[in-house]
Computed example of a mutant assay.
Amino acid sequence: MPRIGAIYQPAFPPERFRAAVLAAEAAGVPELWLWEDCFRQGAYSAAGAALALTDRLRVGIGIAPMPLRNVALAAMETASLERMFPGRVVPGFGHGVLDWMGQVGARVASPLGLMREYVPALRALLAGEEVNTSGTYVSLDRVRLDWPPASSPAVHAAAEGPKTLRLAGELADGIVIPAGKSPEQIADAVAIAQAGRDAAGRAGAPEIVIFLLTAFGGADAETRALEDLRPWHPEADRARIAVGDPAGVAADVARFAAAGATAVILQPTADEPDIEGFYRSVGEVAALVG
């Protein structure tokens, strides 16, 4: 069965973060994922706080925008957290929202070209290697981390379209797929990512992390979840969300696990009225699934 986690929506202000993190830990949520949405909270500062506040919670960064973060800085930040909190950091990187990248002067002409240069450099730096490369987007001259992690964490790449899915499968250790996909679309994405990995001659399968829009509750839960999702996915229907009590949500999780998801991260609506209560319910789902 898949790993279960939850998301801390950046729609909630940073001053609520401490209580939410402690609630997630107390509820038995296995992992908490953070976004680096412009212009809200910084993912690495929030991740460091969450790790320091807790004893067992894994923290996923899903995602930090590659155009916004120099690859050497990303490696330094990731390595520092991994050395302080071994095995509890799941780094994830992606294209970022292109309009936001344009607002800060970081939009690149080829997001795929950036990923092709960025992810191998990041993985090599985290492995303790000296990296020399001069590409269109990534230029490193004899760069080696002074304090690489003892064990390099798996680097995840966010992907949605077929070209990015194939490239992420080729380059990354895991794939992060945003909310709004049906189980059938997840199955197709898994196949595309695996084809990229196979073409690159890499053994095994990538981890498939999916975000699943979730609302706990009664009759209004489905309406609330679909209203949250449809501005991004107008075609969204019941098949693309998880709703109900913890047992019902666990049954929805099983549909996505059958499609190939190895980690299902439950995403609250932006107007979730009780984030601590949401995490308590996620802890119940994790117990049922686990």
Rank of each mutant, 00 (worst) to 15 (best):
G244W: 01
Q41A: 14
F216Q: 02
S139T: 13
T269N: 04
Q9V: 05
A257P: 00
L126Q: 05
A27Q: 04
A287K: 05
R255M: 09
I4P: 03
P67F: 09
T262Y: 11
A221M: 15
R142W: 14
R255W: 10
L22N: 08
G105D: 07
H156M: 11
A43M: 14
L98N: 05
W35F: 14
L73F: 14
L114Q: 12
V190S: 04
R3F: 11
P148G: 01
Y8T: 02
V253D: 01
V97R: 12
V108N: 08
P149C: 04
S182V: 06
V253Y: 01
A72T: 06
P246D: 08
R16F: 10
E272R: 11
Y44N: 06
V285G: 01
G217K: 06
P65W: 11
G277D: 05
I192C: 02
G277A: 08
V108R: 09
L34I: 02
L122M: 11
E227C: 12
P268F: 09
G42M: 06
E31F: 06
R197P: 00
I210C: 01
T54P: 09
L125Q: 00
A52C: 09
W232P: 01
E77H: 12
F93K: 00
P206W: 07
D237E: 04
T54A: 12
A258E: 14
F211Y: 05
A23G: 13
H95Q: 15
G48C: 06
Q41S: 15
D141E: 11
A236R: 01
A150E: 13
I241V: 07
D99C: 08
S151A: 14
S152Q: 14
A236I: 00
E184G: 09
A150L: 13
D141V: 13
G196E: 02
G290W: 12
F17S: 00
R144W: 05
A172G: 05
S281L: 07
P246L: 08
A195P: 08
E117V: 03
P178Y: 15
G218K: 07
L57I: 07
A157R: 01
V243A: 03
M76L: 10
I186E: 02
A187C: 05
G161V: 08
V104I: 14
A179F: 12
A157Q: 03
L53G: 08
V97Y: 12
A124D: 13
A189L: 03
A27Y: 11
G28K: 03
M76N: 15
G135D: 00
M1L: 09
A257E: 10
G48Y: 05
I265Y: 02
M101G: 00
G283I: 03
M115R: 01
G42Y: 09
A191N: 12
S151I: 14
K181W: 12
P149V: 04
E117F: 04
V289W: 05
D146M: 14
A205W: 07
N70K: 11
G102T: 11
